[in-house]
Computed example of a mutant assay.
Amino acid sequence: MVEKDQDLTKYVGERIRKYRLRRKLSQRDMGKLLGIPYQRYQKYEVGEIRLPAEMLLKIGQVLDVSLDTLMYDENFPDEAIKYVRKVRKLRERQFNAAKLIHMIIFFGTMCRLNKTKLNKLLFYADFLHYKEHGKPISNVPYVKLPHGPAPESYNAILGILEGTGHIEITEVVLNKGKGVIEEQITAVRPFDQKLFDEKELEILRKVALHLGGKTGAELSELAHNEPFWEEHGLGKPIDYELAKKLKVEL
């Protein structure tokens, strides 16, 4: 059993190395994007330590590659089957990373964005879809922050997308005298509408049309006026069931 585990660990490391090199990322880049010391990432890649299922999911998101593509080839070892099943079960409980990525790309293509504005557009797209159709688009968890709702760990998500060339984040001086700087987000890769069904696309278009012209401050005020807003403490998750109480209608 020990030998089989070692074979699997080495196999997984070789696969992620292959796709890391295709993305022209260094091991230091991977450590930074994953939020871990690059020395630990090195150990994953050379097969010195076994890669946790949760970390494999993150690596797939960073490398923009599906689990099947990342793991399967003609030399796929039998022992890897149980490991892949474990990762798939974990993935089923998580948000749809591909949809979230392309929601960000969609709004980055359709609207002038900063982080505050993007977070609110994502929130309203997911929650309005839940209100109308009983499920969110991305299923990403949202939390209450001072400027309104935002996807959990949104800074890490945006950092990964910038590092993998999905978006660009640039600093723009709005008021040089007062030192006001805004981080603007622009889509780099094209939007893949095949990931979404017609109901999801309709919500995305409506949110962009009716809310995309507002500023981040205006959208924050809109979110703060939602009836459930005062019920939540800072940093607390916002249950999707509360979408039924949304005031905003498109």
Results as ranks from 00 to 15, higher is better:
228 F>C: 08
51 L>R: 00
152 E>G: 03
102 H>G: 02
190 P>I: 06
93 R>I: 01
53 A>I: 02
175 N>Q: 04
193 Q>F: 08
32 K>C: 00
206 K>P: 00
216 G>V: 02
73 D>V: 04
9 T>H: 06
33 L>V: 01
144 K>N: 08
20 R>N: 08
43 K>D: 12
145 L>M: 15
62 V>D: 06
49 I>S: 09
76 F>T: 08
149 P>V: 14
105 I>A: 12
180 V>L: 12
93 R>T: 14
171 E>G: 02
241 E>D: 13
120 K>P: 00
142 Y>K: 06
149 P>I: 13
124 Y>E: 02
244 K>Q: 13
28 R>I: 13
13 G>H: 09
46 V>G: 00
135 K>H: 15
49 I>H: 10
132 E>Q: 10
134 G>R: 11
35 G>Y: 04
242 L>H: 06
155 N>Y: 13
79 E>N: 11
141 P>L: 11
38 Y>M: 05
49 I>D: 05
50 R>A: 12
106 F>A: 10
249 E>S: 12
207 V>D: 01
152 E>P: 01
49 I>T: 14
128 L>T: 14
186 T>H: 15
196 F>H: 06
90 L>P: 04
83 Y>E: 06
113 L>W: 02
131 K>V: 01
89 K>A: 12
194 K>C: 10
116 T>W: 00
42 Q>T: 12
193 Q>P: 01
204 L>S: 07
62 V>Y: 05
200 E>D: 06
60 G>P: 06
155 N>R: 13
55 M>C: 03
186 T>R: 15
93 R>P: 00
150 A>T: 11
226 E>G: 09
193 Q>Y: 08
185 I>C: 03
144 K>V: 11
238 I>R: 06
90 L>T: 09
125 A>K: 04
69 T>V: 15
233 G>I: 05
39 Q>K: 12
249 E>P: 00
89 K>F: 00
133 H>M: 10
75 N>T: 12
28 R>A: 14
111 C>M: 02
26 S>H: 03
55 M>H: 09
39 Q>V: 12
103 M>L: 13
213 G>T: 01
61 Q>G: 08
19 Y>H: 14
125 A>N: 03
238 I>L: 14
